[in-house]
Design a binder for these strands. Structure first.
Lengths: 162, 162
DNA sequence: GTTGCCGTTGAAAATGAATTTCATTTTCAA
DNA sequence: TTGAAAATGAAATTCATTTTCAACGGCAAC
């Protein structure tokens, strides 16, 4: 099931793609890895979608551009992208790891419909503040948090009522 | 790795165990299943610990009481306990499903150390309020949420510094 | 008390996503 | 150009979870 995202930045500009590629290339150099056509293709494909993609879904999209790129490479590249902050994993609690790109986006959270899998993104400063506050209180050096709301969307409630 | 929990209710009384058993028995009756010694043993073992147990860990504890109880039965009973609200799953994002008992506990969240896996529980009214607020705003009928903070605890920071 | 039904049990097998292996190919610095 | 190091991708493996199935057990009807 494809996880849609509702967003305040509908498309990604050529400029952004270039900047993201620079970030990846710098990261590759930093950790002594090489620059390959596959990695660029995967990054570009990843940036072009607004959805929350599983490795498998991204692999399928990538294959439309270059059918010779394998699942494993997509899997490994997603890890690389996560390392350099271009991607981040969102766990929707359905047993599949999903990724969304983090390029030029403000911090947000998800509300997921448990019937159809669609999701709404929302923004709340308070949640980030809470991370800081709780970390200070218990002497943790916090790095990140996850916050998801689960429920049933309006459309699905309509269906089940009929 | 055993996930410790820090709590405001250190032990569970005989009274609570009895009440929890009643809840399970009623649920079994409701869905047309039977009351068995295994299921009672598993429930009792589950209630006796304050930790966040994986199926495997609970199975090991159960085996100390009755070595003939199999993994599958523990797995299935945890599902039953979840159905009737006695257990709930907490995803610590390490690929293993963990459960904690929900009997007579107030709503709480977790902060997990990514080094040693220990966790702190904390309480925040605001998070629940936020669930309501966001649900109303986007017309979702919300059922639950997850909120976890990840970081490094004081002890682990000490270790890595030395 | 016996019978038959139906749910339970638990070992083993299946599943499926994530990860690793390994032979081959590609990259890149010298 | 060249060779060492990394990348690639198909296949195999891992590992938690879930399902299957044959044997078992309690209980109600006879």
């Amino acid at each position: 099931m494809l996880q849609k995202r509702i967003d305040d930045q509908p498309t990604i500009s050529r400029q952004m793609v270039r900047e993201a590629q620079d970030i990846l290339h710098r990261h590759l150099k930093d950790v002594g890895l090489k620059h390959t056509a596959q990695r660029d293709t995967i990054l570009r494909t990843f940036l072009e979608t607004r959805d929350h993609l599983s490795t498998d879904e991204l692999h399928r999209l990538v294959q439309k551009k270059d059918a010779r790129i394998g699942y494993t490479t997509v899997y490994r590249t997603l890890k690389l992208l996560s390392e350099c902050g271009l991607a981040s994993e969102v766990a929707f609690h359905d047993g599949i790891a999903r990724f969304e790109h983090q390029y030029n986006r403000r911090s947000h959270h998800h509300m997921v419909c448990t019937e159809c899998g669609s999701s709404v993104e929302f923004f709340s400063q308070e949640v980030g503040d809470l991370e800081q506050e709780i970390g200070r209180k218990y002497h943790y050096l916090t790095t990140r948090h996850t916050f998801q709301i689960y429920g049933v969307c309006e459309e699905c409630r309509g269906k089940s009522a009929s």
